[in-house]
Design a protein around this nucleic acid. Sequence first.
RNA 1: CGGGAAGUAGCGCAGUUGGCUAGCGCGCUUCGUUCGGGACGAAGAGGUCGCGGGUUCAAAUCCCGCCUUCCCGACCA
Length: 430
Amino acid sequence: MTNLLNATFNYLWIFLNNMYWSRYFLPTLKEVPTGTEAISHQLSLRAGLVEMLTSGVYSYLPMGFKVLSKVEDIIREEMNAIGCHQLLMPALHPIEIWEKTGRDQTLKEIMITFDNKKGQRMCLGPTHEEIITDLARKFIKSYRQLPVTLYQIQTKFRDEIRTRFGIVRACEFIMKDAYSFDRDIQGLNKNYELQLSAYKKIFQRCGLDVMVVGADSGAMGGSISHEFLVTAPIGEDGVWVNKINGEIIKDEEGKAPQGEHWERKVAIELGHIFQLGTKYSESLGALYLDENGHQKPLIMGCYGIGVSRLIAAIIEVNNDSGGIIWPKEVAPFDVEILPLQATDDPTMRLSEQYYQELKSLGLDVLLDDRDESAGRKFNDADLIGIPLRIVIGKRMLAQNQVEIKIRRSGQVIAVNKDNIKEEIMKLWKT
RNA sequence: CGGGAAGUAGCGCAGUUGGCUAGCGCGCUUCGUUCGGGACGAAGAGGUCGCGGGUUCAAAUCCCGCCUUCCCGACCA
């Protein structure tokens, strides 16, 4: 009985304090890891977001997973808002389906293939056009079922010849891929526009200023396509920006535009949308009947976002010498409470009170209850980059005050200790 | 896949003209003192020196082969 009570108590204690740093799993690194070049690579490792298993393969540690979840939530909200439906397709594919479109050959270089024990040739999905088209073939029979757009957020596998910058180009990464099915080009255009506007919202909510650029569709096939790029020093793509009218064009092999008003920038590709047309529906036989009883191939579009890469891009453009500066909507926590002396009772009582109060207001709160020196806690706080920080120390407390520090601006606000809820909510909403 | 760099404790590094028991800083454990921007003292734990072979009385150190990681190029979200 006593054991049971103890176990219950322990469980409850851990549950209530699950975002106390001392009980969390948040290993920060003081020094820059060897062999890292990109700021986002360094900071994602130092802030305890990810850990490399082997080149291009990463674990997301609890705080990194939290960021991932928040980004996924944003994507899900915006996809659902334009009427898309989420599903989940397998990562494991029989090679036959890829042979039908010939992409077992065109994607040979990056495809991870192997034989299973039955001697069946398998691959780990590098993308899912074939699989979704197969689903459409089986279930979409009539024009009455159109249009429809399906999407998933899932792990892709690409045996990249060269991985880069940690999570920026990995062999195993998370992608949001959506696929639209229409009866005609007008429908496709409409869906394409819906995705394009949803993409702008997604990136904006992630705190990124993206450029939308017309692009080649490459191995995807189809005609029209657009890329979503964000300028960053580690960008793998070049673009030309017209300083006069804001026009942006992709930098393709040596075709530099004329004039001094064109400026070259490098950027990271975060999303790519394509009008596929009937390439996949024809080769896989995904046909529907129109109102005249004629069999026609489905008109398709596909729409991708590199979700894990997006996190790297966010860090790449939101940091300072101290560490990450999370944009509000994707921050792993909204508020960090930083008591300076973990051994001081009044300090800790107030910290715990704030923790409970702010949580009950729906905020995501981290309490750094570790008995560490002030300098170390401050530096860790800068590193992990939570937007709002409440600092509680004896000196201020003697005057009934605590401090709020805004990570991005560095602004420090002294607040009466009894007004913290109101002040935090006010700052949170701006 | 071509070109370059690097693998020594969890992390960052020194040691490499062959030579004692492989070292430093950070981190970790214990005790004490501290406590508003990476504190101090004392005592500890932690290593197949990337792997395999060779040369030698003796190899982290020299030779050969391999593996891994990072960076630059061709492809992609």
